[in-house]
Nucleic acid binder design. Sequence first.
DNA 1: CTGGAGTTAAAAGAAAAACTTTGTCGATAT
DNA 2: ATATCGACAAAGTTTTTCTTTTAACTCCAG
Lengths: 304, 304
Amino acid sequence: MKSPVHLNALRAFEASARHKSFSAAAAELNVTPAAVGQLVRTLEEWLGMPLFHRASSGRVRLVPTEAAERALPDIRAGFDRLALGLERLKEGSASNVLTVTVSPAFAAKWLLPRIDRFQAAWPDTDVRLDTNHKPVDFAVQRVDVGVRYGPGNWPGLEAEKLMEEEVYPVCSPGLLREHGRLRKPTDLAREILIHDLSMDGYTGFPSWMAWLKKAGVAGAATPRGMQINNSAAVLQAAIDGHGVALARSVMVRDDLAAGRLVRLFPEVECASALAYYVVYRPECGNLPRVKAFRDWLFTEVAAG
Amino acid sequence: MKSPVHLNALRAFEASARHKSFSAAAAELNVTPAAVGQLVRTLEEWLGMPLFHRASSGRVRLVPTEAAERALPDIRAGFDRLALGLERLKEGSASNVLTVTVSPAFAAKWLLPRIDRFQAAWPDTDVRLDTNHKPVDFAVQRVDVGVRYGPGNWPGLEAEKLMEEEVYPVCSPGLLREHGRLRKPTDLAREILIHDLSMDGYTGFPSWMAWLKKAGVAGAATPRGMQINNSAAVLQAAIDGHGVALARSVMVRDDLAAGRLVRLFPEVECASALAYYVVYRPECGNLPRVKAFRDWLFTEVAAG
DNA sequence: CTGGAGTTAAAAGAAAAACTTTGTCGATAT
DNA sequence: ATATCGACAAAGTTTTTCTTTTAACTCCAG
């Protein structure tokens, strides 16, 4: 845990390596080139090895040693992280921008239609959305809170279950009228099934294959299909009457309520092993803006 | 990118918060308590806010402010990362321990049976194995190189394809003799299929379901099965004659060669979308020990 | 109650850095 | 050739950091 070295020397080294020049580094650090040179030399003596190949000729005279090159990414990451910590100190809880990370589909289908109510309740808080498929690094991306889909364990993060979820087929009312013969799951064999590729990475998420099995449709000999890489687009395709989609209850709540989609075969229950969780860094759980958003999420869910 | 603060003051703050005492922090940093106190005070003045609640009574007199508490994890992470960078500087390429991360099954079934030859060729290099299911953070775990299974894109890491892979059913010779009727894939319906749960998390990895479909076995009405959570144990169960396993070519190469297992239905080809990759941090690719290991892996694969 | 051991706090002086100044040298560009 | 630019070196200066000392305070033991 001890880093007994001259931290300033390390910083001088980093800047020099970045600019490949003592002078440029000196300019950045608001000191004279000689000062930087001395710091770096001190560090080199302390380590017992050179950090730069000093070329007395050529345009670039300062080339980091191989060992230096190897250590630089870590040193940079270290300083970055420290700067982040400082920033966090300075802002304190004063900042009024709340950064939320969610998946694009969840943003479009659940959060955005409701976010007005949060902004109305907390007009002084600016919400910044960070829509991303993959879980992001909360620390480096300066994310305050996220709503994430998964099994509920994120390393180093607090997670509270927000909503459980069911999975069922949906289609447009028009499609249902035309192909009026969608009475039992086996009728799906004649329909175009819309597959959601974006959920492939989630272990435990029911695919069409799994749902059909659960519905008792044996040997679902791969009916005609359509592959779409985005959950929101999957639902849009279903709304447009292009086929039958396997929908997540959370995502289609509004579309069902508005009559844009209808649920098929409610008698088949298929719960997802995954759920939506509110996720945040433990040390940020007490931030007023985070607490406010978390509480708002839960009331919003409770309100149906 | 600038962190113009007194870095030493930050360190003093961190140590004080950790020990909840200036004196203890001072002992750690080999200075007097007064020095630590001053550093922290200057930091507080610079920030314009207190960092500790000074209790004049009670056993613990130094309690970090909420803002401080929130910033501490980042500050710690920053110093840790810096220390790591320093370590990397000091060792240089001199270290002779090579840390390799692989999955437990790959270690057992492929790497360990061959590792002797690497150690013979590089007797001065100590190999440390880090067997883990999940991809680890190469930086914080001080991992030099890994052999990982997946689609080939790891953020921030260099990846070179080492081996492609096929998937096919295998069983013990004994089982094949007794149930001599394993002539075509549909015969599998009467066998116990061993499922490898540990591969569930890998998108694109063929399951029994997918293989049967590919083999033209329609409506594989879930034959009797056995679920095992570990690839090596799956193969061991097959070797022991408990059923038919869906094996990855890389894993069973030795078992097939030794006659412990036999491949079934070689006429059905089922390539995995995934492959084995050599993975390492870009900045470490030139380390002699990493280069040596990488080259050895490729010659080992080429040798069959 | 009283004294010792443990804190933090505040001052001033001592020590150790970090930095600047000045000047030299080699290589490059004009 | 010569002006320029950047690294290097040595000496001097400034600033920061640390220690020392003193004081005030709390807790605990006698």
